[in-house]
Write a protein that binds this DNA or RNA. Structure first.
Length: 718
DNA sequence: AGCACGCCGACT
DNA sequence: GTCGGCGTGCTC
C-alpha cells in the first residue's frame, strides 16, 4: 500500500475543503491508557458532544466509549480515522467537569484514562460489546422534570432546624456560607454536631438550587445519615454504593444526570456521580483509610473530593473527630480552613473517662490468675483483666450494654506444635493460618484458603496449641464467665453482608444483645445509646503493624471506639487493656488529646521525612517466580537511583528498598516493593514515568511474567 | 484482551 | 517452496 501523499496546503486551500468532525474517545480497555480518535459521519456531526457514549470499532471488536473532546478537521485528515458507529445518548452523560476530573485522577494516580471513566458510567455499558445492544431505557434522553415536581413525585417535607445550634456550630455554618466556596476541615469530637453543620449548609445551598454530595467511609453508615438527610432536607436522596444492583445503579445515575435529584449519599465511588449544579461535597470521617481505593484506579476519595469541589466552585467539608495528619498539614499549608466544634452539644454527655489496664502488671497477680483459670474453662490465663471483668459484671447487673473491641478475627492467630515448633502456614501466602474453633478449621485471612484444624502436628504427630487472641475466643470467654449474658459478634466472619449487619445493629439497639464483641466494624460511627462500657481487649495490636501510620491509626481507632460509649443518659466507662500503657497513641487517646497526639506524630513524620511532609508512592513488583520479583525490583531500584544521580535530584527525593513487602507472598505471588518519596509531586511523576518506561520491566509485564503496581499516596504499606 | 505480522524450522 | 510455530506490538 502506498503512503498517503503529503498534500501541499495553505490556509485558504484548507478552509475550502469540506470540514469534518473528529472526536476523542476514552475507551475502557485495559491496554489503552489514553483516548483514540475517530471521525464523525456528517449526519451525526451536530450530535456528537463530549460526555456522550458512543459505539466505536477497535480492531475487529466494538466497544462503548465516551467522547471526551471534539474538534473540526479537514476531511482529508479524517480519511485516516475510522468513524464512530453510533451515538448512545441524546444528552451528555458526563459533564465537562466530570471528564476533567477523570483526566486528573488518571494522571495523578497513573491509571488508564478509560478505566477512570468507567467510574462515571452505568454498569454494563463499559463491557465489550459483542452484539451492540443498548436498551432504550439506558439512553439518556432530553426529557426532564423539574425539581419541585420531583420533591412533590415523594411527599417529603423539610424538618425545622433544632431550636438551638451551639455557638460553634453557628460560627462554622456562617463561615462556610458567607465566604466564597472553600475547602474546610471540620474537627469535632463525637457528639459535637458535625452532621447538623453539613445539613444546615446543604439546606442553604438547596435554596439556591445547588446540589450536595455526601461521602461516607462505608455503606453501613449510609443508613443513619440517609434518614437524617431526608428528614431535614425534604428531598429525595440518591444512594450510590457498590452494593446496588446494576439496575438500581443505572437508575441512580440517570436520575442525577437528568437533574432529577439534588442530594447524593454514597461511598467513595459516588464522587464520580453526574451531579448537576454541585454546591457541596461532604467527606465524613475523613481520616478513614477506606477512602483509599486499593485497586486501580487507586484514588483517595478525600483528595478527589477536594479537587472536584474546586473544579466546580463548590464547598468541600471534611469532617472528623480525629483528623488525618494529611488534612491537618493541608490546614497548615492554607489549602483547608480549620473549623472546630470543641464540645459536645448540649444534652449529650461529656466524653467518658478512659482507664488503662497495664497487662504487664498482671504478673504480680499470678496467684489470682491461677484461681481465675481454675474457674474458667481450664485454658490459659484469662484475656480479660480483673478490672474489665468487674466492669462487665457491673454493666450486666445494671442491665446495660457493653462493647468489646479486638481487631483480630477468629479464635487464635497461630496454631503451633509445642514440641517441634511447626506452625500452620498458608501455602500461597506468607501468613500463619488462623484457628476457628467454631468451624474446627484453620484459614488464611489473605486468600481464604481453609483446611481442617490439626490437633496433631503434621511433622512430629505431637499435640498442637492455638496461640493468640481473636474475637471468637473473646466471645467464648465472655460466655464462660457470664453464662446468662446474650453475646453478639460483629466481624466479617459473623456478619457477611449489609442485611446481616443491619440486623445485628438493630438487635443491639433494641437491647437484645448484652455484650457485643467485634473488630473495626464496631468502631465506626454506629450509635448505641445503651452502651455504658467499652473494653479494648488489646490496644497493642494496631501498634505492631509494619507501617509508618500504625500509631496514627491506633490513635484514631482507640478514640473512635471510646466514642461508642456514653451516647445515652448513663455515665460510661472505657477500659483499654495494653502491654504498652506509655505509648503516646494510647496515652493521648486516653485523654482525648488529639492536639497532643498530632504534635507528637508530626514531629516524627517530619524527622523521618514521611508523609504528609513528602509526596510518596509505593512501587511493587509481583511475580509467581520469586527470583524474578526480587530481580526486577532490584533492577528498578538500581535504574531509578542511576536516573536520580544523572538528573541531580538526589536532594529532593528518597528511594527506600527494594524490600520484600510485609506480606512477602500473597495468593502465590511474591512481592517486592520500593517506597519513593519526593519533595514535590512533579518529581514523583517523573520518577514513576521513568519506572514505567524501563524496557526490561515493560517486557516482563507484557509477557505476564510479572505485575507492576504503582500506588500514589499509598495508605497501606502491605 | 485479541489479533495480525513476521521470522524461524519441518514438511510436501 | 510453503505451512504454521509463537514472540512482539498495535489497536484511532
Amino acid at each position: 500500500m502506498t503512503a498517503p501523499l503529503p498534500i501541499p496546503t495553505n490556509d485558504t486551500a484548507r478552509a475550502e475543503e469540506p470540514v469534518q468532525m473528529q472526536v476523542q474517545v476514552a475507551v475502557p480497555l485495559f491496554a489503552i491508557s489514553g483516548e483514540l480518535s475517530y471521525s464523525v459521519p456528517t449526519e451525526l456531526a451536530t450530535q456528537a458532544i463530549p460526555g456522550m457514549r458512543v459505539i466505536i470499532p477497535v480492531g475487529k471488536r466494538k466497544f462503548v466509549g465516551v467522547i471526551t473532546a471534539n474538534n473540526h478537521i479537514s476531511s482529508v485528515d479524517g480519511t485516516r480515522l475510522r468513524p464512530i458507529e453510533q451515538i448512545l445518548d441524546e444528552l451528555p452523560l458526563l459533564s465537562p467537569e466530570q471528564i476533567e476530573l477523570c483526566r486528573f485522577v488518571a494522571s495523578y494516580y497513573v491509571a488508564p484514562f478509560g478505566e477512570v471513566i468507567k467510574l462515571c458510567l452505568p454498569p454494563g455499558t463499559q463491557a465489550l460489546l459483542k452484539t451492540a445492544k443498548i436498551g432504550k431505557k439506558a439512553k439518556l434522553k432530553a426529557a426532564s422534570h423539574s425539581h419541585s415536581q420531583h420533591a412533590a413525585q415523594s411527599g417529603l417535607v423539610a424538618e425545622a432546624s433544632p431550636a438551638t445550634l451551639s455557638p460553634h456550630q453557628n460560627t462554622a455554618i456562617s463561615t462556610i456560607l458567607t465566604n466564597p466556596p472553600g475547602a474546610y476541615l471540620l474537627e469535632g469530637v463525637t457528639g459535637s454536631g458535625k452532621t447538623q453543620v453539613y445539613l444546615e449548609v446543604a439546606r442553604a445551598l438547596l435554596a439556591k438550587g445547588l446540589s450536595s454530595l455526601f461521602i461516607v467511609p462505608e455503606i453501613a453508615l449510609t443508613e443513619q445519615l440517609l434518614a437524617r438527610l431526608q428528614a431535614f432536607l425534604g428531598e429525595p436522596v440518591v444512594l450510590l454504593h457498590s452494593n446496588l444492583t446494576p439496575a438500581a445503579r443505572r437508575e441512580a445515575l440517570f436520575t442525577l444526570a437528568t437533574g432529577n435529584a439534588r442530594i447524593v449519599l454514597g461511598a467513595r465511588s459516588a464522587l464520580f456521580a453526574p451531579v448537576k449544579n454541585l454546591g457541596l461535597i461532604v467527606v465524613d470521617e475523613e481520616h478513614e483509610p477506606s477512602f483509599k481505593q486499593e485497586e486501580s484506579p487507586r484514588y483517595h476519595a478525600r483528595d478527589v473530593a477536594i479537587y472536584r469541589a474546586k473544579l466546580e466552585s463548590a464547598i468541600a467539608i471534611l469532617g472528623s473527630a480525629t483528623p488525618s495528619l494529611e488534612s491537618l498539614y493541608n490546614v497548615d499549608c492554607g489549602k483547608l480552613t480549620h473549623l472546630m466544634l470543641p464540645e459536645r452539644v448540649s444534652g449529650a454527655r461529656t466524653l467518658p473517662k478512659i482507664e488503662v489496664v497495664d497487662l504487664r502488671a498482671r504478673k504480680a497477680h499470678r496467684q489470682s490468675q491461677r484461681e481465675d483459670r481454675a474457674k474458667s474453662e481450664g485454658s490459659r490465663i484469662s484475656i480479660l483483666s480483673r478490672p474489665l471483668k468487674e466492669a462487665l459484671a457491673a454493666c450486666l447487673a445494671a442491665k446495660q450494654q457493653a462493647l468489646l473491641f479486638l481487631n483480630k478475627r477468629g479464635y487464635a492467630g497461630i496454631v503451633v506444635c509445642d514440641t517441634c515448633g511447626h506452625m500452620g502456614m498458608c501455602k500461597e501466602c506468607s501468613v500463619s493460618l488462623t484457628y476457628y474453633k467454631s468451624k474446627n478449621a484453620m484459614l488464611c485471612h489473605q486468600c481464604g484458603h481453609t483446611e481442617r484444624a490439626t490437633e496433631k502436628c503434621p511433622e512430629c504427630s505431637n499435640d498442637t496449641v492455638a496461640l493468640g487472641l481473636g474475637t471468637e475466643r473473646i466471645e467464648d470467654e465472655v460466655r464462660a464467665l457470664f453464662p446468662d449474658a446474650r453475646t453478639g459478634r460483629l466481624d466479617r466472619d459473623a456478619v457477611r453482608d449489609q442485611s446481616e449487619l443491619q440486623e445485628l445493629l438493630t438487635q443491639t439497639q433494641a437491647g437484645l444483645i448484652d455484650v457485643l464483641i467485634g473488630t473495626q466494624m464496631l468502631a465506626k460511627g454506629h450509635h448505641f445509646p445503651n452502651v455504658t462500657l467499652v473494653g479494648v481487649v488489646l490496644a497493642d495490636t494496631a501498634l505492631s503493624m509494619p507501617d509508618f501510620r500504625a500509631a496514627e491509626r491506633a490513635f484514631h481507632t482507640l478514640v473512635q471506639v471510646a466514642g461508642r460509649a456514653g451516647r445515652g443518659d448513663e455515665p460510661a466507662r472505657v477500659i483499654f487493656q495494653t502491654f504498652n500503657p506509655e505509648h503516646p497513641a494510647i496515652g493521648f487517646a486516653r485523654t482525648h488529646d488529639t492536639e497532643g497526639f498530632v504534635a507528637y506524630e508530626k514531629a516524627i513524620r517530619a524527622a523521618l521525612k514521611k508523609p504528609p511532609f513528602v509526596r510518596s508512592a509505593l512501587v511493587r513488583v509481583e511475580s509467581t517466580d520469586p527470583r524474578l520479583a526480587k530481580q526486577l525490583a532490584g533492577l528498578v531500584a538500581d535504574d531509578l537511583r542511576v536516573h536520580i544521580a544523572h538528573t541531580n535530584v538526589g536532594a529532593q527525593c528518597q528511594v527506600l528498598g527494594p524490600a520484600p513487602a510485609p506480606y512477602e507472598k500473597l495468593r502465590g505471588f511474591t512481592r517486592y516493593h520500593l517506597f519513593i518519596s519526593t519533595l514535590g509531586s512533579k518529581l514523583r511523576s517523573q520518577l514513576i514515568a521513568h519506572i514505567q518506561n524501563m524496557d526490561e520491566l515493560k517486557k516482563s509485564v507484557r509477557q505476564k511474567r510479572c505485575r507492576l503496581i504503582v500506588d500514589v499516596d499509598p495508605v497501606h504499606m502491605l
